[in-house]
Design a protein around this nucleic acid. Structure first.
Length: 487
DNA sequence: GTCCATAGTCGTCGGATGAG
DNA sequence: CTCATCCGACGACTATGGAC
């Protein structure tokens, strides 16, 4: 088993730009500004850093390759993993280097079983949720009030309108790294609705797991069987990550696939468009806290730690730490269900009581798609709410543009005037008003007035306004208006 | 009818951002 | 040498309307 593991695994490498350590399971290409690096630094006390530096020197890892000492053999597995795990592990955490107490998977996850296929065996664990299961602020049943059809016009995929969420497979993989040809999905979690014994629906999370790399053909075979029963996917960033990765694995195992061609609701992009303005980060773990009302328990593990836990398991055969990975994957899957409900609800039945920032985000998306009626409604609702000034102006700009494109100039005018009245530096609204008077009503005096107003705004910027391109543009406009007025 | 300036639209590019 | 998507910026192209 050791031969599978590259000698770069569990590698500590020096970050290029600052004297901090980046811990990573592939050749590190991370900068100090990466979130992982910052997080790592947060959790690493100075004392620990020094200890690690000493250890790294002993291991022959130093900055630059010029002065490399021959590295000592890494046998037995160094305890450095432990050091890094400590901030995230309860103090009762088992000692990984204790070879006497290795616990195999089947003992730790009693519900799991080894399933045999024509291509070998694979560990499979099912977890069944009733639909009244509470997850954060929501219940799983909430999703079935909605349809993927709600997302069809927004994602511009009509196939989403033809199926129920019961026809979709929720999917989330845990892998040996972020990307690259050598990355494996050592766990594939799928979730689906199915009728229970009494006819009522339930939600099944099924996790396929590679006890070692040789199990992969069996995993793919079992996954393929399940895929045949379903038509589409719900994922979080699966379009960029999980699906291309799995497709690569199918190809490597000489199995035909059509994963990319399926209807696919990737929740990341709708979530970003709907909530980025209000919530900032739209990582699934952030959305759980800020949107779904969920706090992960102590049993969870941060995503970036997962590849090394798997490597640790491959080396030692001890699956104790992997229990947390199974848990993590399960929660991801269930979060996708309630997140899908939130997304489809927001797209199909926005509530006037929703946060005005969310109504703005939705209205803007609808406006971009040409859904003018709905867009106007939501942008006007948002404008009545309590928006931060910057978004308030962005909201009014989008509304003004919508009305202008619709030829409704007289209705757009008061919108632009509202921006001009409430902003100290919004030249764009002034220019729109000037255009309106010049080209729509030929009130050249008014047009000149608003152009001059805009110019005085730019002048108030001081040195920055002096050479700003908008100034030249405004002066050009003013000259033209002056000529028209003179003739 | 032609010419010109202006405004609006469309395609493209680079930077961010998620996924483990 | 991940990769799909979004977004803002920017240049090229097209449509429009006024002047002659």
């Amino acid at each position: 088993m050791r031969s599978i593991v590259s000698k770069n695994d569990d590698f500590y490498s020096l970050c290029d730009r600052r004297p901090c350590y980046v811990w990573y399971t592939a050749p590190a290409r991370l900068s100090c500004d990466s979130p992982r690096c910052r997080l790592q630094l947060e959790h690493m006390a100075d004392q620990k850093k020094e200890e690690l530096q000493k250890k790294l020197r002993r291991l022959g890892v130093v900055r630059g390759t010029g002065q490399l000492k021959p590295a000592r053999k890494l046998k037995p597995a160094p305890t450095v993993d432990e050091e890094l795990l400590r901030p995230f592990t309860p103090s009762t955490s088992p000692n990984l280097s204790d070879d006497d107490d290795i616990q195999p998977l089947e003992t730790l996850l009693p519900g799991g079983e080894i399933v045999s296929t024509a291509d070998g065996d694979c560990f499979v664990l099912d977890h069944v949720y009733t639909l009244d299961h509470q997850h954060g602020d929501d219940r799983l049943a909430d999703l079935l009030d909605f349809s993927p059809a709600a997302a069809a016009p927004f994602l511009q995929d009509e196939r989403l309108a033809q199926h129920d969420f019961r026809d979709f497979l929720f999917l989330d993989t845990e892998t040996t790294g972020l990307a690259g040809a050598g990355t494996l999905a050592f766990m594939v979690g799928v979730g689906f609705f199915e009728p229970g014994s009494q006819g009522e629906d339930r939600f099944v999370v099924r996790q396929y797991f590679l006890r070692d790399h040789g199990d992969e053909p069996a995993l793919l075979l079992l996954l393929d069987e399940l895929l045949a029963e379903k038509t589409g996917f719900v994922t979080f960033n699966g379009r960029s990550f999980d699906i291309p990765l799995l497709e690569g694995r199918f190809i490597m195992n000489r199995m035909p696939t059509e994963l990319r061609d399926r209807p696919h609701l990737d929740l990341l992009h709708p979530a970003r468009r709907l909530w980025r303005h209000r919530l900032g980060s739209c990582a699934l773990s952030s959305l759980e806290g800020s949107l779904l009302g969920l706090r992960r328990s102590q049993d969870d593990v941060p995503g970036w730690l997962i590849p090394s836990l798997y490597n640790q398991y491959l080396r030692s055969g001890d699956a104790r730490e992997l229990v947390r990975v199974f848990y993590h994957n399960q929660i991801d899957m269930v979060s996708m269900v309630t997140l899908a409900a939130r997304v489809t609800r927001q797209l199909s039945r926005p509530d006037p009581a929703d946060h005005p920032i969310d109504l703005f985000s939705l209205g803007k998306w609808q406006a971009d798609l040409g859904l003018s009626t709905e867009a106007e409604q939501n942008l006007r609702l948002a404008a009545q709410g309590d928006l931060p000034l910057e978004l308030y102006h962005a909201n009014l700009h989008r509304l003004g543009l919508l009305l202008k494109r619709d030829g409704r100039y007289p209705e757009a005018l008061p919108i632009w005037q509202q921006i001009a009245a409430t902003s100290l530096d919004d030249v764009a609204a002034h220019v729109e008003i000037a255009k309106y008077y010049e080209w729509q009503t030929q009130e050249l005096e008014q047009a000149r007035f608003w152009t001059e107003q805009a110019l005085s705004l730019v002048a108030s910027w001081g040195r920055r306004g002096q050479h700003h391109p908008v100034r030249a543009e405004l002066e050009h406009r003013l000259n033209r208006l002056q000529q028209k007025l003179n003739s």
